[in-house]
Amino acid sequence: MCSVLLLMLTVISGKVSEAQAAGSSAGKHRQAASGAKGRKRVVRKKAAPATARAPARPRRRGRAAAAGVAAGAVTAATAGAAVAANASSNAAALPPVNTKPELLPRCGFTAASKQHIFSRGVYVLDEQTNTPLFERNADTVAPIASVTKLMTAIVWLDQKSLPMSNRLEVTEDDLDTLKFTHSRLNVGASLSRADMLHIALMSSENRAAAAMSRDYPGGRPAFIAAMNAQAQALGMKQTRFENATGLSPDNVSTPRELAELVKAANRYQLIRNDSLDKQKIINIGRGQLQYINSNRLIRYGQVNATVQKTGFINESGHNMVLRLLVHDRRPVVVTMLGSGSADGSRLDGVRIAKWLNCSLN
């Protein structure tokens, strides 16, 4: 009986101990949970002020960024001013840009190609800027042959009230007794003064030029004197004329001075028209004659010009002068003396025209 009671007491005591242990453990869990909750609340309480102060920080950063941007702008402005100052200084130190026109190597104007020019004397002048573009023996005095007829036309047209429709007859005084050249204008042929001028310029008709010089107040001597006076007035100091046809080797000039003659001739509408006409039928009183332009560059439309004239005698070789219009608008005077052949003179004109059309605007 006692042992039974002792056993029951032992069981009850163990249950009590287990209950106390469970209660103690539960209390610890509640305390831990309570502590955790307390710590969470403390953390939230501490985080709240930080969250409240957070908007203030971007404002400080904004002021700093604004200050940085302002400082950067000042720095950039200072740097820009420095660059501008340096650029200005460098620009002042650089030589001025050469705006004068020139013939360009990429356009074929090379030392080798210049050697292929047949004419002994050449002068190429950009009339727009008065710039020489190419020279060869430009100041060498040489016979100019029928290039003379440009001056013949100028002096003859300068007569006052010249009746161009009046007819002019070819006489024996108009025959060539120097070179004994042939002409289709026989003695007795009668042409209007306008036609005389036309074929003298277009076809280099010698008897027409001779008749024109005779048909002048004071006769032929007065006409030759007027030609030389006009040359001096144009500043052609080394130019001399002995007759109106160019058959005399004593009719001389230089490639540079002939540029002045070309520019003067270009001021006359009749000279421009007649020198560029390709062909014309002339009434000579007892029939008709057809004439063509003696310059094949003009006759076949190989260049665009406003004035031209060719010339040849044995002493001069083949000569040609032109006032070209580069790109149909820019005037360039080209004078060429002393080619060994008519083809050489023509090819020189083609080559120079190509240089000009490629090099100039």
Rank of each mutant, 00 (worst) to 15 (best):
M8F: 11
V11H: 12
A36F: 11
A36P: 00
V43I: 13
P49M: 02
T51A: 14
R61Q: 14
A64N: 12
V74Y: 01
G80H: 10
V83D: 10
A85K: 08
A85Q: 08
L94C: 11
K100M: 08
R106N: 10
F109G: 04
F109P: 03
A111G: 10
I117A: 03
R120M: 05
T129M: 04
P132M: 10
F134A: 10
A145H: 05
T152N: 04
D158F: 07
Q159E: 14
K179R: 15
V187R: 01
R193I: 15
L197G: 07
I199M: 05
R207E: 02
R207D: 04
G218C: 09
G218P: 08
F223T: 03
N228Q: 07
Q230D: 14
K237A: 15
N243R: 00
A244H: 00
S248K: 02
P249R: 12
E260H: 15
N283V: 04
Q288N: 06
N295A: 09
N295I: 08
Q302F: 13
Q302N: 14
E315K: 04
H318I: 00
N319Q: 04
L322V: 02
D328E: 14
R330W: 14
G338Y: 04
G340A: 12
S341Y: 02
A342H: 06
I352D: 02
